[in-house]
């Protein structure tokens, strides 16, 4: 388990890193937290010509609030997100989700940008980006561009990033008055990749939930929004409405069979999560089995 030899370069700025990526062609990769990339290299599941280390670029770190927007540098570590008062106040969904990301040693090195650029379908963070309506700020040879989260995650480990582009920041609309967040996942052990997880945010209004965004992860090739179920839950809550929304998940999700769980089990757990989510957002006691 030794990585094949590769070249290594440390970038002092985003511009320099982009130039390195351009020169590296398709054979260059960025080193952010290294928590997925380095194991893949060591297992020789991938090889590369050039590793561009961007861990020293201070401008890529940090969390700040500007107006109603939360701006997070792409190289901000999970551990920093977990303890950030700004995240806790303005993006409680993200704060809840980060606690489920692996273990402290991994959270101390892993970064939000690295995670999103990796686009692991079982990861918590892409789902949060979709649920929060995030904007991803990308820099490439021809300058900066902004991409909505819904247009960023394209498939299994696939994003809208070109090989010579860097995800530099994430912008999240701050939690609006009356909005509530729900996050939960089912994993065999604490810190494991989830079998199924749900990131949701919406505005409870009496016994309805307005503006609900439901995003599942661990199900299918990428984090999956469930607009049909969310629409149904805009109606007044009743067991029949919940059941209808749970049934609608079958159309929104494409659960896979793997050694963690069968597709049937994933769909069952997704439905269980939905009931839990609705009860929590509406402030109802957890429905008993």
């Amino acid at each position: 388990m030794k990585a094949a030899a590769f070249n290594y370069a440390r970038a002092a700025s985003v511009d320099e890193a982009v130039q390195m990526l351009v020169r590296g062609g398709g054979g260059a990769k960025l080193l952010a937290g290294g928590q997925s990339l380095l194991p893949a290299l060591n297992l020789r599941l991938m090889s590369l010509d050039l590793l561009v280390d961007i861990t020293g670029i201070a401008a890529l770190r940090g969390i700040r609030v500007e107006g109603g927007t939360l701006k997070i540098g792409a190289m901000t570590r999970h551990a920093d997100l977990l303890t950030s008062p700004e995240i806790a106040a303005h993006a409680p969904l993200l704060a809840k989700a980060i606690a489920h990301v692996a273990h402290p040693a991994i959270r101390n090195r892993g970064t939000i940008g690295g995670n999103l650029a990796h686009a692991d379908p079982a990861s918590e963070l892409p789902a949060c980006m979709l649920a929060l309506g995030a904007t991803l700020v990308i820099q490439g040879p021809s300058g900066q561009r902004r991409v909505q989260a819904a247009d960023f995650f394209l498939g299994l480990y696939q994003t809208a990033l070109a090989p010579d582009e860097i995800l530099i920041a994430i912008e999240l609309p701050a939690l609006a008055s009356g909005e509530r967040a729900f996050f939960h996942e089912y994993a065999r052990r604490m810190g494991d990749y989830a079998i199924v997880g749900l990131a949701a945010q919406g505005k409870p209004a009496g016994d309805r939930i307005d503006a609900l965004r439901l995003v599942y992860f661990g199900v299918g090739e990428r984090a999956g929004s469930c607009p049909a179920a969310a629409r149904i839950l805009q109606q007044r809550h009743s067991p029949a409405i919940l059941a209808e929304a749970q049934a609608a998940l079958a159309a929104d999700l494409q659960p896979q069979n793997d050694h963690q769980a069968s597709a049937a089990m994933r769909l069952h757990l997704a439905r269980t999560l939905l009931a839990r989510c609705v009860n929590e957002l509406l402030g109802r006691a957890e429905a008993s089995a």
Binding site: L43, R188, R189, M190, G191, D192, Y193, H259
Partner: peptide
Amino acid sequence: LTNATMADYLVPMAAE
């Protein structure tokens, strides 16, 4: 053998 890594072969951990 389909799960020959520490991510896929689940050893008992303290939290559980």
